[in-house]
Amino acid sequence: MYITISPQKTGGAFPKSSAGFVSYLEKENEGKSLENQEFFFNQEEDRVDPETVIQEIDGNTAKLKSSEPKFYSVTLNPSAYELKNVQSNEQLKAYTREVMKAYAQSFNRDIDGRPVNVNDLKYFAKLETQRTYKGTDWKIKENQPYATRILKLKNEMRRIRQGEQSGNLKSLQQQMDKLEREAPHQLNGQRITQGMPKEGNQAHIHIIISRKDASNRYSLSPGSKYKASQVVMNGKMVQRGFDRDHFFKQAEKVFDQKFGYRRNFVESYQARKMFLQQPKNYLQQLAKLPTPEKRIAFRMLRAAGLPNLPSIPTNKVQLALKTFKSLKRGVEIALKSGSIGI
């Protein structure tokens, strides 16, 4: 599971309206009849139109400064392995509602003398089923040398046609066709390029959440630099902060329980955190996995873009001495691909 939490935007003043972001989330509805469109949903409602979302989010910004975000965006991106256990889009929406309970519980503050709960949130979620390849995707990066050479040949052919230089157009076209075929990553017989729709089940969730609680009185910022803690303000003890660790762990736990998913070591939030903080321990734990689990782990990392994958290490000594540097670099790329980790 790959989960992101991001503010409305970074730097400078924030737009007064959520209209631009809501419009972006409507992109998959373009050209579809009303009955085939995906509506926004929240904890109680299944069919919320974009105009209502904009009105609700924009009208819930009391006392926020222009330098503060009006809303936050959360994305829930199940991996291809996880999606195999999800039987329908409705199940993914039900999971989202459970995740939002965990999101509310991760705030370390009180509202009217009680902990924050999901009813205090003003949020709207949207299911999307398509993704396109971006320049940061590992398949695009590995195809890039071929793309560069193809572009060079195209420019050369253009100059020949314009009479700027001489050359054999047929020969250049043959070279270009050969490069198209030899590119390592293909989809339906074509070289994978930026903007091309990704194959397979690409279901994921976008969530827009108001910075203010549903009553428009309290600020609920998941971007707080403070972890769950207490501080004295104006002579009074005040709770503050958002516990991201708790949120990420609960989101993972809810998925596993709801869908009966057996999570491999490399998919877990705890493992990703270990890799970032203690990479040698991560790789040693990877080496200690039972052979069947280890094979699955490396298959997942390979699918996520682990380059130059060495043979599976047989023990932690071999791992630490012979493959640590190259494997660490490769695992880092795979984890950042969005297929594994939070």
Rank of each mutant, 00 (worst) to 15 (best):
Ile3Asn: 14
Thr4Trp: 06
Phe14Lys: 14
Pro15Trp: 09
Ser23Tyr: 14
Tyr24Gln: 02
Leu25Ala: 01
Glu28Gly: 00
Gly31Leu: 00
Gly31Cys: 00
Phe39Gln: 06
Glu45Arg: 12
Ile54Asp: 01
Gln55Asp: 11
Glu56Pro: 03
Asn60Ser: 11
Asn60Glu: 07
Thr61Phe: 04
Ser67Trp: 08
Pro69Cys: 07
Phe71Arg: 03
Asn77Ala: 07
Pro78Asn: 05
Lys84Gly: 02
Asn89Asp: 14
Glu90Lys: 13
Gln91Lys: 14
Leu92Trp: 10
Lys93Tyr: 03
Lys93Cys: 06
Ala94Arg: 14
Tyr95Pro: 09
Arg109Asn: 09
Gly113Thr: 09
Pro115Gly: 08
Ala125Glu: 01
Thr136Ala: 07
Asp137Cys: 09
Asn143His: 00
Tyr146Arg: 03
Arg159His: 11
Gln162Pro: 06
Gly167Asn: 06
Gln173Trp: 06
Gln175Val: 07
Gln175Leu: 10
Asp177Val: 04
Lys178Asp: 10
Glu182His: 04
Glu182Tyr: 04
Pro184Asn: 01
His185Met: 02
Leu187Tyr: 08
Leu187Ala: 11
Gln190Phe: 06
Gln190Leu: 10
Gln194Met: 13
Met196Ile: 01
Gly200His: 12
Arg211Gln: 15
Lys212Phe: 00
Asn216Gly: 08
Ser219Phe: 09
Leu220Tyr: 00
Ser221Pro: 05
Pro222Phe: 00
Gly223Trp: 01
Gly223Glu: 02
Gln230Val: 10
Gln239Thr: 09
Phe242Cys: 01
Phe248Asn: 06
Lys253Gln: 11
Asp256Ile: 04
Arg262Phe: 10
Tyr269Met: 04
Gln270Asp: 14
Phe275Thr: 08
Gln278Ala: 12
Pro279Thr: 10
Tyr282Glu: 09
Leu286Gly: 03
Pro292Ile: 00
Glu293Met: 10
Ile296Phe: 04
Phe298Asp: 01
Ala304His: 04
Ala304Val: 02
Ile312Lys: 02
Thr314Val: 12
Lys316Leu: 11
Leu319Tyr: 09
Leu321Tyr: 11
Lys322His: 14
Leu327Asn: 05
Glu332Pro: 04
Ser339Pro: 03
